[in-house]
Write a protein that binds this DNA or RNA. Structure first.
Length: 494
RNA sequence: GGCCACGUGGCGGAGUGGUUACGCAACGGUCUGCAAAACCGUGUACCCCGGUUCAAUUCCGGGCGUGGCCUCCA
C-alpha cells in the first residue's frame, strides 16, 4: 500500500517514503501552555494522531522494510513553556507570587488540562513530549552554529537570524523577501539589519525566566519562539526527518523560520521531507474570538456546550468528517449529527471482539492524504453491508472505542453557544446561577423494566391509551421502545 | 496594501473533463393497534462572468463573497 501525503512546500501530493526505513520520524508543533486548549487547537492534535496511527499500522505491515514489520514510528510533539504570553498570564493570575513561581503554576495547570483534554479526544501520547525549558542547551548550540556560519548576528543583546543569508527564505510561505517587506505593517526594531530578521535569543527582563546567554552576551536571556522547535526536533529526530506538521497559520513565520534555522545550522537541503498543515476552524460561521463570545475550549465541549456535555469521541469524529486541509465550521448541528452517527454505529458493533484486520479500502482512503470523509463513506457502506466486524476494526484503528457507554451524552451546563445562536452567552457567564442545569438523572434498569412490563400488560388488555402514556413517560426519561415479535426491547438514547 | 486558501442540493461533505457520491434531515411506501425500529423508494446541486473544449461543477483568466497569514494565534 502506497501512502500519499500533501506537502505544503512543493504544493503536491507525493508518495511518502521514510528517509530511514527503520524509523519514521514526525514532529508536530504542540501547545503553548498559557491557557486551556480551544477546539481549534484540537484539530492538529486529532489529525496527526490519525496519521500517527496510520504510520504505525503501515510500519507493522512492513510497508517500508520489506515486510519485516519492524519500522519504528517516532512522533514528537513539543510543549512550549517559555513565552511572553505565559509571563503575562502568570503576572495577571498570580500578582502576589514571584514571577517564576507564578509561571510554574500557570504552566502546570494548563499542561495537565491539555493532557486530560487530548486523552478524552482519543489521542495517543506522542513518543516524546519535550518541553522547551528543558532544551535550552540544544537551542544555544544551534544559535552558536548559526553565528559561526554567518547566518546569525548579535545586536543589542539579541541574537537575530539574518534572512538575507538564506537564499530559500520564503519558499514555504511562497512569498519573496521583497513582497514581505512591501507588505510589512510592523515597526522594525532599529537593531535589525533587515526588517524580516527574527529573534533567536533575547535579553530577559528582571524577574523573567532567564538562562546564561550564548554568543558571549553577558546578560542572561531567553530563547525566541522558533528556535525551540528546531532544537527539539534536532535532538529527537535528527538534522532531517520525514514529516513536520501543524496548523496552517504556523506556515509563516514559524515554520519558515524553523526551516531557515535548521537548514542553515546543518547545511541540509531540507528540514522535513513533508510539511503538513491542517486548515483553519471557525465556530458557527464566525472566527473564534473571545470578544465574539464564541471561543470554545475542549474542556467546555466535554463539560457543557449548547446544553450538552459531549463525549470526546463525538468531537473526534466530527473533526474527521471534514478533510484536514479544508476549512471547518464547528457548529452544533454538525456535532449533533456526528454524535448520532456514532451512536447508531456503536449499536451494531456491540459485543464484538476486536482484531487487527482492517479492510484494505479503509487503509487505502487513509493512504490518500488522510481522506477521512471518503473513509467515513466507506464505513457507512460497511454498515449497510452488515460487515460489522470490519466497521469495528476500522473504528479501532482510528481511535474510537466502539462502546456505547463511552459516548452517552448528558445535559450539561449551558454556557456557550446555543443552537439558535451565540447571543447571550456572555450573560450566562456573568450569572453562574443560571447556567447550571443538573446533570440528567437516568432511571435504574429495574424501574425501566417495571414500566415496560406495565405497558406490555396494558397492550395485551388493549388499553392503548395507558400503554401510550407509559411510552411517552419513558421517552421523557430518554428511553425508546422497540416492539418486536419477541417482545418489547428498550434502549437509552443519547 | 502584499501573499495564500476556500465558495457543491435544506444542512454536513467527497469527488470528477461527459456516467448515482455518501451521510443527516425531509417526503412517500411496506410493516405496526398507533408509534419506534427495520426495509424499499424520491430529490437531480456544484458563487458570477468570460475563455479553452465536441463537452466544465471539474482546466485557464477576471469578478464577488468568506477566511487565513504578513502583529511569536493550531
Amino acid at each position: 500500500m502506497e501512502l500519499k501525503l500533501y506537502d505544503t512546500l512543493t504544493r503536491e501530493k507525493r508518495v511518502f517514503v521514510p528517509l530511514d526505513p527503520n524509523n519514521v520520524r514526525m514532529y508536530v508543533c504542540g501547545p503553548t501552555v498559557y491557557d486551556f486548549a480551544h477546539i481549534g487547537n484540537a484539530r492538529p492534535v486529532i489529525v496527526f494522531d490519525v496519521l500517527f496511527r496510520l504510520l504505525r499500522h503501515l510500519a507493522k505491515q512492513g510497508v517500508w522494510d520489506g515486510g519485516k514489520g519492524e519500522t519504528k514510528v517516532t512522533y514528537v510533539r513539543n510543549i512550549t513553556d517559555v513565552d511572553d504570553k505565559i509571563n503575562a498570564r502568570a503576572a495577571e493570575e498570580y500578582p502576589d507570587l514571584p514571577l517564576n513561581e507564578a509561571i510554574r503554576k500557570v504552566t502546570e495547570k494548563t499542561d495537565k488540562q491539555f493532557h486530560d483534554d487530548v486523552a478524552a479526544l482519543g489521542c495517543l501520547p506522542p513518543t516524546v513530549e519535550p518541553r522547551a525549558t528543558e532544551h535550552i542547551v540544544e537551542m544555544k548550540a544551534l544559535i552558536e552554529r548559526l553565528i559561526a556560519s554567518g547566518n546569525a548576528y548579535v545586536a543589542d543583546g539579541n541574537v537575530l537570524f539574518s534572512v538575507r543569508s538564506m537564499p530559500d527564505y520564503g519558499k514555504l510561505a511562497k512569498r519573496s523577501l521583497d513582497e514581505m517587506i512591501a507588505g510589512a505593517r510592523v515597526e522594525v526594531a532599529p537593531y535589525k539589519r533587515d526588517p524580516m530578521d527574527f529573534i533567536l535569543w533575547k535579553p530577559s527582563k528582571p524577574g523573567e525566566p532567564a538562562w546564561p546567554s550564548p554568543a558571549g552576551i553577558a546578560a542572561p536571556g531567553r530563547p525566541g519562539w522558533h528556535i525551540e522547535c528546531s532544537a527539539m526536533s534536532w535532538k529527537y529526530l535528527g538534522e532531517m526527518f520525514d514529516i513536520h506538521g501543524g496548523g496552517i497559520d504556523l506556515v509563516f513565520p514559524h515554520h519558515e523560520d524553523e526551516i531557515a534555522q535548521s537548514r542553515c545550522a546543518f547545511h541540509t537541503p531540507l528540514m522535513a521531507n513533508f510539511w503538513m498543515h491542517n486548515g483553519f476552524l471557525q465556530v458557527e460561521g464566525e472566527k473564534m474570538a473571545k470578544s465574539l463570545g464564541n471561543f470554545v475550549t475542549i474542556k467546555e465541549l466535554l463539560e457543557g456546550w449548547c446544553g450538552y456535555s459531549w463525549p470526546g469521541e463525538a468531537l473526534r469524529f466530527n473533526m474527521l468528517r471534514t478533510h484536514y486541509r479544508q476549512p471547518i465550521d464547528w457548529k452544533f448541528e454538525s456535532l449533533d449529527e456526528s454524535h448520532k452517527i456514532l451512536w447508531e454505529w456503536y449499536k451494531d458493533i456491540e459485543g464484538l471482539q476486536e482484531d487487527s484486520r482492517v479492510s484494505t479500502d479503509v487503509i487505502a482512503w487513509l493512504c490518500d492524504d488522510l481522506n477521512t470523509p471518503e473513509l467515513i463513506t466507506e464505513l457507512h457502506s460497511l454498515r449497510k453491508k452488515k460487515e460489522f466486524k470490519s466497521l469495528y476494526n476500522a473504528l479501532q484503528l482510528l481511535g474510537f472505542s466502539g462502546k456505547r457507554e463511552n459516548i452517552i451524552r448528558r445535559a450539561g451546563t449551558s454556557r456557550g453557544v446555543s443552537a439558535a445562536g451565540i447571543a447571550g452567552s456572555f450573560n450566562a457567564k456573568e450569572n453562574p446561577d443560571q447556567i447550571t442545569i443538573a446533570g440528567e438523572v437516568l432511571p435504574s434498569d429495574d424501574q425501566i423494566e417495571k414500566l415496560v412490563s406495565m405497558r406490555s400488560a396494558a397492550r395485551v388488555a388493549k388499553n392503548y391509551k395507558e400503554s401510550d402514556r407509559i411510552r411517552d413517560e419513558l421517552k421523557k426519561m430518554g428511553i425508546v421502545l422497540h416492539d418486536t415479535k419477541d417482545g418489547t426491547a428498550w434502549e437509552k438514547v443519547r
